[in-house]
Design a protein around this nucleic acid. Structure first.
Lengths: 209, 209
DNA sequence: CTTTGGTGTTACCGATCGGTAACATCATGG
DNA sequence: CCATGATGTTACCGATCGGTAACACCAAAG
């Protein structure tokens, strides 16, 4: 083992065009099926088949279905965090533009998505009552999102950042959940317009409107 | 059978203090368990036991678990409709007060509830992908709620009733779903204040603000 | 009284699901 | 070339679940 490399990096990307490692394919399959059909409705065998492998290999990478669920939610949470970084890079030094960038992102996601709402929130619903550690993942992610929203609203110079952030948060969550329950042509489709109007009307700190 | 009475009304309320008919107890048990633990997580046997009866009697009243789910959601939908009638009786002829009455109602429900959000929306999440007729029930109820909101906002004299109604709708749905996913101390607890502020700031038709 | 219809009880069936054991296969690294 | 470790395959286990059959029970209506 050479210094600076992970010890005996096994399966070093067989070929550039080779398919991903089984663990990644399983996570991708879980992501697709969990989101589309629901966590409880999908069996581990279906996930393994969708990943082009089998149940044994799945259980060699994840100790249980619950562990797979947690890994799935952790990945979703990480990707959600990445979106915030993306917004920061897209509109550097401009918190207001970052806010609007994020809103548009959520809106277009809502359009292109299969209308199944927020995968994290759906998981929290399906894992009800259970002291499943996965629920903690969802809660932590949502809490972080809320805090980030408050911070961004404050940086953008709004007079009441917490109130504005909570209102935006509820609008976004409501849009996603109603996308699931009332359909893609429901009020969720107006999220972008409503949120933008809200931002336009919100008072700033220095100059009263 | 005497005229003016339903033909051979069977089981005419045995005694004033007697417990309800099995069908009612089953529906009540299903309501409690479905909401608390999730539809897919609860077995028919648990529902029957919670209702003080057994699986056979359950299947004598509901042809399948899916039929029970539909009955459960239909009842929820009916009760939701009843709340609108209650608002009309509580604040007759005053659409604005009815709006605020409903908002307060939702908020206090959010507080006293177990933090599991909207039972209808949760059902839509759990019944994902399936062309389950129950999904139609949820969709119809949500659509009706939205239309009623628009009508009430229009009657209350707001200048942009559809926009305001959709914003209120999203706020309410977001508050309920985030009650489930981020917890009872999340932004959902601010629903009432946010919505009231929204109503206060919304322009009316006759006198511009 | 007897009849009748709803109810309780037990046992069971078939299907599905999460999870495991044992063994064959195959590519890699030494 | 051989050893090693990851992967594929098959079969299986126990538990749970939706749903049904058969029969005993019990209260009310005639």
């Amino acid at each position: 083992m050479r210094p600076g490399l992970a010890p005996t990096r096994r399966r070093v990307i067989r070929k550039p065009s080779a398919r991903l490692a089984p663990r990644e394919r399983i996570l991708a399959a879980a992501r697709e099926l969990f989101y589309r059909d629901g966590i409880r409705a999908v069996g581990v065998e279906a996930i393994a088949a969708c990943a082009g492998t089998n149940k044994m290999t799945l259980y060699r990478h994840f100790s249980s279905k619950d562990a797979l669920i947690s890994a799935y939610l952790n990945r979703l949470s990480d990707e959600s965090d990445a979106v915030w970084e993306e917004a920061r890079r897209a509109e550097p030094g401009n918190p207001g533009a970052q806010l609007r960038w994020l809103l548009r992102r959520v809106s277009q996601f809502a359009d292109e998505s299969s209308g199944r709402g927020c995968a994290l929130a759906n998981a929290a619903v399906e894992l009800a009552g259970r002291r499943h550690p996965a629920c903690r993942i969802v809660e932590a992610q949502k809490r972080r999102t809320r805090e980030r929203l408050v911070a961004l609203c404050r940086e953008a110079g709004f007079a009441h950042p917490r109130e504005l952030a909570d209102e935006l948060f509820l609008l976004v969550e409501g849009a996603r959940v109603s996308l699931q329950s009332v359909g893609p042509r429901g009020p969720g489709s107006r999220l972008c317009a409503l949120a933008e109007a809200l931002l336009d009307a919100a008072p700033k700190v220095n100059h009263k409107v």
